[in-house]
């Protein structure tokens, strides 16, 4: 999928994560992460973000995320929502998510 614009999803409320996804000119997934639990879970959060993006075929992207202790499935949901907003596509989204 191609990112057409910046997409944002999530909030700064407790147990949530705010994810902003911007298109990038070059290959690679850059993640700028802030988290209340960065010491314990920083690496895991990054992994979930990049795995979710790869599943969706996104690999030229800058991600800015501010985590307030979100569960893995919440992180995944917010990344997917931000991508769907940035690509403007809903079509086939669930099937991609499914596989």
């Amino acid at each position: 999928m191609e990112l057409k614009k910046t997409g944002m999803a999530g909030t700064l409320e407790s147990s949530d994560i705010l994810v902003v996804i911007e298109p990038k000119n070059s290959e690679g997934i850059d993640i700028l992460l802030e988290s209340v639990v960065i010491k314990q879970f920083g690496d895991q959060i990054r992994k979930i973000i990049s795995n979710t993006l790869r599943e969706l075929g996104i690999n030229q992207v800058i991600v800015r995320a501010n985590d307030k202790g979100a569960l893995d499935c919440v992180i995944k949901a917010r990344v997917q929502a931000a991508v769907s907003r940035a690509t403007g596509s809903k079509e086939c989204f669930w099937r991609v998510v499914e596989s």
């Binding site: 910046t6 944002m8 999530g10 909030t11 700064l12 409320e13 407790s14 949530d16 705010l18 902003v20 307030k68």
Partner: peptide
Amino acid sequence: RGIAGRVVSRLVAEAY
């Protein structure tokens, strides 16, 4: 109680 976070989140979402 996370109220400030809620206000800022709403404003950020609206701005975006």
